[in-house]
Computed example of a mutant assay.
Amino acid sequence: MPRTSPSVSVTRRLRGRAMGLVVAGTALALAAPIPATATTAADPAPARAAAAADPVSVLKYTAKERRAALAYWTPARIKAVGKSVDLGPTGPKTKPYKGAPLKTVGRLFFVNANGADTWCTGTAVKSANKSIVMTAAHCVRRGSSPYNTNMDMVFVPGYSKGKQPYGAFAVRSAATPRSFETKSVNDMAALVVDADKKGRKLTDVVGAQDIAFNRAVGGKVTALGYPATRPHLGEKLLHCVGTAKKEHGLQFIPCDMSGGSSGGPWLADFDATTGKGTLVSVNSAGDALIATKMYGELFKATAKKVYDRAQHA
């Protein structure tokens, strides 16, 4: 698939009423859907029916594809993708993060379904396989479009101003809710990453945030991400802090982070002196082109199924 630098576009998602925050390239027009790495288009009807009944959709990348992804995301390419996107000045609610180093949070680089280089944000969390990164589903695939999926996915924890202090981890598989694949509902994902070049698993290297499901909405939440706004343009970790409230079947906090912050963690009970908290959602969408609210999914039964599928992969 051709690679191009992305033009600036923010894709409308989330049931048509909010705006996804991925930095979406639009350099290539799609004449037809792009097949995923492993498709079921030619499968017999019973196999398709069984897949549709599964509430979790899993996208897998081959060993060859993972090696290619690590080779693709050179420091020069990472620098170039940051310079190619400018979503305007950083909003007044968004501030640079200045607490203890957050080794668990990083930039998630990938080539999107349009063939453009871009990024989201992800977080290493506690899991049985010590290899899980939580992010947004729209950082993995296009909503309501089963065959439009992203490729060359690499997670760089602790990324800051070109530095990769803990290396880069290729994404081996990505679990999303089937409902996002078919209806753009439940915008969250759990990625499984390979060990690093030294054979170490992700959370053995960077640690892990706690994760909670079915937690009551409320209390102070810290949302973090790498938005493509000036002056940092994705090179520095930024954050918002606010009280979570329910709205439209989702939760939100006052926050004006923009594209690039998608998938970034919502950490409850966050202690900036230790860099520890509990993941209760991820950045999913803003309420307008110039956002005043950040929305995140409620991590309930569907999110738990996605996480469990990934942590036991």
Results as ranks from 00 to 15, higher is better:
R3H: 15
V10P: 00
V10Q: 15
G16L: 08
R17D: 12
R17L: 11
A18N: 10
V23N: 14
V23C: 15
G25F: 05
T26K: 13
A27L: 03
L30M: 14
T37K: 08
T37M: 10
T40R: 13
A41V: 14
A42H: 06
P44G: 00
A47R: 10
A49H: 03
A50K: 07
A51R: 14
A53E: 09
D54I: 04
P55T: 00
P55A: 03
L59A: 06
K60S: 13
T62K: 05
A63K: 13
L70C: 09
W73Q: 09
S84L: 04
L87H: 12
G88R: 05
G91H: 10
K93F: 06
K93P: 00
K93A: 12
P96T: 11
G99M: 08
V105D: 11
L108H: 07
V111R: 15
N114Q: 13
G115H: 05
A116N: 15
A116E: 12
A116P: 01
D117R: 10
W119K: 02
T121V: 09
T123N: 14
V125H: 10
K126G: 09
I132D: 06
M134D: 06
M134Q: 12
M134P: 01
A136W: 08
H138E: 08
G143W: 01
G143N: 02
P146R: 02
P146Q: 02
Y147R: 12
V156Q: 10
K161L: 05
K163E: 13
K163G: 00
G167C: 03
A170P: 07
S173Q: 13
A175K: 04
P177H: 00
R178T: 13
F180T: 01
S184T: 11
D187Y: 04
L191M: 11
A195I: 01
V221Q: 06
G225I: 04
P231W: 07
H232L: 07
G234V: 06
E235I: 00
C240M: 03
G242T: 05
G242W: 06
T243W: 01
A244M: 01
E247A: 12
H248P: 00
Q251A: 11
F252E: 07
I253Q: 09
I253W: 03
G260F: 07
S261V: 06
G263Y: 06
G263I: 08
G264A: 10
D269Q: 06
T278W: 06
V280C: 03
V282N: 09
D287P: 10
I290Q: 15
A291T: 07
A301L: 03
T302P: 01
T302G: 04
A303Y: 01
V306I: 03
